[in-house]
Write a protein that binds this DNA or RNA. Sequence first.
DNA 1: TAATATTTGTTTAATTATTCACATTGCTAA
DNA 2: TTAGCAATGTGAATAATTAAACAAATATTA
Lengths: 213, 213
Amino acid sequence: MFIKNLPHKTVERLSQYRRSLLMILSKEKTHVFSHEIAQMLHITPVQVRRDLMLIGYSGNLRKGYDIKELIELIGKIIDSERGQRVAVIGLGNLGKAIISYFKGKRSKLAIIAAFDINPEKINRVYDGVACYHINQMAEIIKQNNISIGIIAAPAQQTAEIAEALVLAGIKGILNFTPKALNVPPFVYLEEYDMITSLEKVAFFAKKNDERFK
Amino acid sequence: MFIKNLPHKTVERLSQYRRSLLMILSKEKTHVFSHEIAQMLHITPVQVRRDLMLIGYSGNLRKGYDIKELIELIGKIIDSERGQRVAVIGLGNLGKAIISYFKGKRSKLAIIAAFDINPEKINRVYDGVACYHINQMAEIIKQNNISIGIIAAPAQQTAEIAEALVLAGIKGILNFTPKALNVPPFVYLEEYDMITSLEKVAFFAKKNDERFK
DNA sequence: TAATATTTGTTTAATTATTCACATTGCTAA
DNA sequence: TTAGCAATGTGAATAATTAAACAAATATTA
Ligand SMILES: NC(=O)c1ccc[n+]([C@@H]2O[C@H](COP(=O)([O-])OP(=O)(O)OC[C@H]3O[C@@H](n4cnc5c(N)ncnc54)[C@H](O)[C@@H]3O)[C@@H](O)[C@H]2O)c1
Ligand SMILES: NC(=O)c1ccc[n+]([C@@H]2O[C@H](COP(=O)([O-])OP(=O)(O)OC[C@H]3O[C@@H](n4cnc5c(N)ncnc54)[C@H](O)[C@@H]3O)[C@@H](O)[C@H]2O)c1
C-alpha cells in the first residue's frame, strides 16, 4: 500500500504507534482509544487521529481503534512487502546492542549480516547474525539483497564504509558515528548521535531546574 | 549565559555544530564559513547563520566564524557552568557503548556512575566509570549531585527505575528503552528508539528506490 | 424518549521551523 | 577608484507541524 507524501514525523509516529500497540495487544485488550495511544507517547489525541486519518484508517466511535487491524495497516504502509534486509558494520558494543535489540522484533526487517575487521569476530555468529570480514561486504550484500546498512564502526572509517555500501547498492544508511556523511540522493541517510540527545537533556534539565526552583 | 526561548531544534543543532567544529579545529583551520558548517550537517547556510544570530554570535565577513570562539560560546549557552553529572542505569552492551563513547568527550558533562544488578558488574570499574548495585542508586546520586540519568536496562524495569531516579532528585532522563515513561513536569525526558530510526530509513529507502527506478 | 457523555473525523487556526531575498560589508583586482 | 564578488545578518514569506474547535455518531441513563 502506498500513501502519497506521508510527513516525516507521521512516519516516525506510525512506527511508534505500532511498537506501543504490539506491547499492549492482548486477549482482553483488542481496542484502543486515541487518547490512550496519545498518553503512551506523550502526544495529543488529535495528533494520533490526524495521523490515522492520513493513512485512511477509521476507528469505531464507541470502541476506538482495532489494535490488530491497525498494526497490520501500519505494516502495509511502512514495511516493504518483500521485506528488507539489513547489515550492521562494526560488531563492537554498539553493534551488538543493536543486533540483540532487533532480534526477532520485526519480520519484514531483518538484520542478516555483520561486518568487522577483528579476526576474533569474523566467521562467528552473534545472536543469530553471522559476521564476515569487511572485504566480503559487497559480495554478501549483493548475494543477499541487503538494502540497508547500519554503521557502528570507528568514526574514522565511516566515510570509506559508506562509500563501499553505496557502491554495493545499498538504499538506506543509518549512521551512529559522529562523522556526518555525504551520500548520493538516491540513498536515504539518517544520522543519530547520543551526545546531541544527552546535551539536549542537559540543557533543558538545567533550564527546568531554574524554572521550578 | 542564558538566551530566552531557544528553539528545541536550535539547541540540537548547537550541539552538532560544536561536535563538528571540534573535529575540524586545527592550527591551520581557525575559521569557518556558514556554508562549510552547513555542508557538514546537511543543512542550509541560512539555517546556520540564523542559529548563530539567535545566540548573538557575529562572524567576520571575510574569514567567517572563529571556530574556537564559537565552540566556547556554544559551551556557555548549552553547558551548565558548574557541570552536570550523569549516571547510566544498566551496564549491558548499550550501557557500555554509551560509556565508552562519552569517555573524555565533554568536560562539563561527565558520566560518573553506572548501576546494575548483575554481581559480576558491581563494584568494578568500566572505562573509568564505577558500577554500583541499583539499590545504592539514591544514595550515590545524592552524594555526587548527579542530575541526569540514562536508562539502558531491560525494558520491563524502566518505569520502576525512572521512578527511583525522580525520587532521587534527577532533573533529566534519556531513555533508550522501548517503554515510554511518565515523569513529572520538572523532569525533562528524552526518548530514543533505534527501531523508529531504522523503520524510517527502511520506509524512505523503499520510497526512494521506487522514485529513482 | 430525551438529555448526557464520549469519541471519532476533519476543517480551520496557531505555532514552529525553514527558506528566500536582499541590504550591507569589506576585500580584490581591473 | 570603482566594479565585482563572496560573505554575513535579518525581515518577510513560505512550509511543515501541531493544536483547537466542533459536527456527527452512538451508547448510556435519567
Ligand atoms: N552515535 C552514537 O550515539 C554512538 C554511541 C556509541 C558509539 N558510537 C559510535 O559507534 C561506533 C562504534 O562504537 P562501539 O562502542 O561499538 O565501538 P567498538 O570499538 O566497541 O566497536 C567498533 C567495532 O568496529 C570494528 N571495526 C574497526 N574498523 C572497522 C572497519 N573498517 N570495518 C568494519 N568494522 C570495523 C572493530 O573491530 C570493533 O569491533 C563508534 O564510531 C562510536 O563513536 C556512536
Ligand atoms: N532504544 C534503543 O535504541 C535501544 C537499542 C538497543 C537496546 N535498547 C534497550 O536498552 C536496554 C539495554 O539493552 P542492552 O542490549 O544493553 O541489554 P543487556 O541485556 O546487554 O543489558 C542490560 C543490563 O541491565 C542490567 N539490569 C537488569 N535489571 C536491572 C535493574 N533492575 N537495574 C539496573 N540494571 C539492570 C543487566 O544486568 C544488564 O547488564 C534494553 O531495554 C533494550 O531494549 C534500546
